[in-house]
Every structure is written in structure tokens, then in C-alpha cells.
């Protein structure tokens, strides 16, 4: 999928672990893992809002579009 989720990059910048994010956002570890590995099919605006709130960033910092090479 050409949409990349830079969750690990943001976590590294904020020096936060996935477990801590999971606890603060209220999303299970497995769901965060799906998001991080790019297996997710869709992200709710509500979830994006919570993550941005905790990581103190913009949605654009988390999501990136890369043209697929065909």
C-alpha cells in the first residue's frame, strides 16, 4: 500500500515505547502492532486524534504517501 504509517519514527522521536503509547491512547498492543506494520486497512479519525494528542504531532507526521513503483 502506498500509504506509510511512520509510527515507529514518531515513537523514536518522542522516546516513547509502544507499550506506553498503547496505555496512554487506550488501544491494544495488537492493534498498534497492526498499525505499525502497515497491515491496517483503515484508521479511524478518532484513533488518529488520540495518537496525535499523545505524541504531540500532526497527522501528516504519522502518514506518508509514497507512489508505488510499478
Amino acid at each position: 500500500m502506498p500509504i506509510i504509517i511512520n509510527l515507529d519514527v514518531m515513537l523514536a522521536r518522542r522516546k516513547m515505547s509502544l507499550t506506553e503509547l498503547s496505555e496512554r491512547v487506550g488501544i491494544t498492543m495488537s492493534n498498534l502492532s497492526i498499525l505499525k506494520t502497515g497491515k491496517a486497512k483503515a484508521v479511524r479519525l478518532e484513533t488518529l486524534e488520540s495518537i496525535c494528542d499523545v505524541l504531540n504531532c500532526q497527522p501528516g507526521d504519522l502518514l506518508e504517501y509514497r507512489k508505488s513503483e510499478t
Partner: peptide, 8 residues
């Protein structure tokens, strides 16, 4: 169903 389950 899969799509629903993979919506975070």
C-alpha cells in the same frame, strides 16, 4: 469482515 477487523 476482514476490513472491519483491520480498522484501527
Amino acid at each position: 469482515k476482514q476490513e472491519h477487523e483491520l480498522t484501527i
